[in-house]
């Protein structure tokens, strides 16, 4: 399986994306923003469709759209993680983006195969330029997380207390949503817009369900994301069933097992 260059690229791509999905996903679930992870990857689809229409790489369209949407979502935080308006804001940004995406595909006269690729991903089609772009996105996101680290964790666990201690909660929230948007775009490259959030949400939700602290939780989420994406690739190679199927199913199974363990 490793003698083919496309499989080597696929495994490298999965490794980069899994590290990113595990860490960013853990914070997303901690902050109860699973809906944001879901929405951001769908919004990325619209950006990718727009990029296809303009004749540029879908990844760049995905990044641009997700980033804008992430900042819009973060702006509704108003310093409180559980703002009642937050989900409404995410839903509306998602609805508008999907509308735009449909129009972009229509204008691009896009073949249904293009839409399918954007929605379900094409991990086996990752080339060297995409791999380099994914590496760049991952380095940027992880550096951002390291910089935001302490205030982000503090504000995620106790927003009121963090704000009282002088944490710029709104700025931290915006910074994190920008990171999440970039990470969702990268994940969509592997598992597609429809299932990108399975790699973001599944491992992180499992780690949190197990009641692990921040460090153990982050390490477990990354390890699980790697297990799912590598396992998905290997199983796809053996069974000829698409990778996102295995990732999605595996994510649900991992969470189910965590529920059984913590019953």
């Amino acid at each position: 399986m490793f003698e083919f260059e496309f499989m080597q690229h696929a495994f490298l791509g999965c490794t980069i994306v899994s590290v990113l999905a595990g860490t960013v996903g853990w914070f997303l679930i901690l902050r109860r923003q699973a809906f944001a992870a879901h929405a951001l990857s769908h919004i990325g689809f619209s950006g990718a469709a727009g990029a296809v229409w303009l004749g540029v790489s879908p990844l760049y369209g995905m990044i641009a759209f997700s980033l804008l949407a992430g900042l819009a979502m973060g702006s509704e935080a108003k310093g409180v993680v559980l703002s009642p308006h937050r989900d409404s804001m995410i839903g509306l940004v998602l609805a508008a983006s999907l509308g735009l995406g449909t129009w972009f595909l229509h204008e691009a006269n896009g073949a249904s195969s293009m839409a399918t690729t954007l929605l379900f991903g094409d991990v086996l089609g990752i080339d060297m330029p995409t791999l380099l772009a994914l590496t760049g996105v991952a380095v940027l996101c992880l550096s951002g997380l390291v910089f935001l680290g302490r205030p982000l964790l503090f504000a995620s666990l106790m927003p009121d207390v963090a704000q009282a201690r002088g944490v710029p909660v709104r700025l931290t929230s915006l910074g994190f949503m920008a990171i999440a948007a970039l990470a969702c775009s990268a994940c969509a490259e592997v598992s597609g817009a429809l299932l990108a959030f399975s790699l973001m949400v599944g491992p992180a939700a499992t780690a949190l369900r197990l009641g692990l602290g921040p460090i153990a939780g982050l390490v477990s989420a990354v390890a699980l994301a790697l297990f799912l994406s590598w396992g998905g690739l290997a199983l796809s190679w053996m069974t000829d069933i698409p990778v996102p199927f295995w990732i999605g199913l595996g994510a649900a199974a991992c969470y189910g097992m965590a529920c059984l363990v913590r019953r």
Binding site: V146, L157, R165, G166
Partner: peptide
């Protein structure tokens, strides 16, 4: 918020929690 995290992590997160970095 974050009810699934151990209690001690809530206390540790507040230590120098406003400083940038990890």
């Amino acid at each position: 918020a974050a009810l699934m995290i151990p209690a001690i992590s809530h206390v540790m997160a507040a230590m120098n929690g406003a400083q940038w970095g990890v």
